[in-house]
């Protein structure tokens, strides 16, 4: 077979199509395209809603996981701030957090029906009895003691 015989065959095909197949195909395809486009838009909207809901749930989850862990520490911080009146900058910054000044521990009044403890001694008279040298020595010990320093901070 040569090129001339190819030309003899031409463009003919051994296939046929049902009668009227090509008529109305455009409208049918457009209707199907509209339907699928609508379904696609609905799918995208649902997907966006699911993503938004997941993000909100994740944000709430994170909030509830982190916030309760901090809550017990807050009164401690408040008390520490209260004990350091000289640190004014920090205290001013956090003052709104401290809603209520912690109550000073009240010393109960000595009961009159019970006799005072004979063994218990006030510190004032004790210090009065110390000599100047002993007082200086006591002050030096106080300064040198690292545990005493940290406990007051």
């Amino acid at each position: 077979m040569n090129e001339e015989e190819f030309k003899e065959i031409g463009k003919r095909l051994p296939y046929s199509v049902p009668d009227g197949f090509f008529s109305g195909i455009a409208e049918k395809t457009l209707a199907e395209a509209r339907k699928r486009e609508h379904a696609r838009v609905v799918r995208i909207r649902i997907w966006r809603s699911v993503v938004a809901a997941s993000l909100i749930a994740a944000a709430w989850g994170t909030y509830y996981l982190l916030i309760p862990a901090r809550t017990p520490e807050m009164p401690i911080v408040a008390q520490q701030i209260h004990r350091q009146p000289q640190d004014t900058g920090f205290r001013e910054a956090v003052t709104p957090v401290v809603s209520k000044k912690p109550e000073e521990p009240q010393t109960p009044e000595p009961r009159k029906d019970i006799a005072p403890d004979a063994g218990a001694e006030e510190i004032g008279p004790l210090l009065e009895r110390l000599t100047d040298e002993e007082l200086l020595e006591l002050a030096a010990m106080y300064k040198a003691d690292s545990f005493m320093e940290t406990s007051t901070q």
Binding site: V17, T29, A33, R40
Partner: peptide, 23 residues
């Protein structure tokens, strides 16, 4: 049709082709 031979398959693929064009 020349590629897939079957009319039914060709009809389906033709529709898919134009739907992709629309999209």
């Amino acid at each position: 049709r020349r590629l897939v031979v079957s009319h039914d398959d060709a009809e389906d693929i033709l529709q898919e082709t134009f739907i992709k064009v629309y999209r």
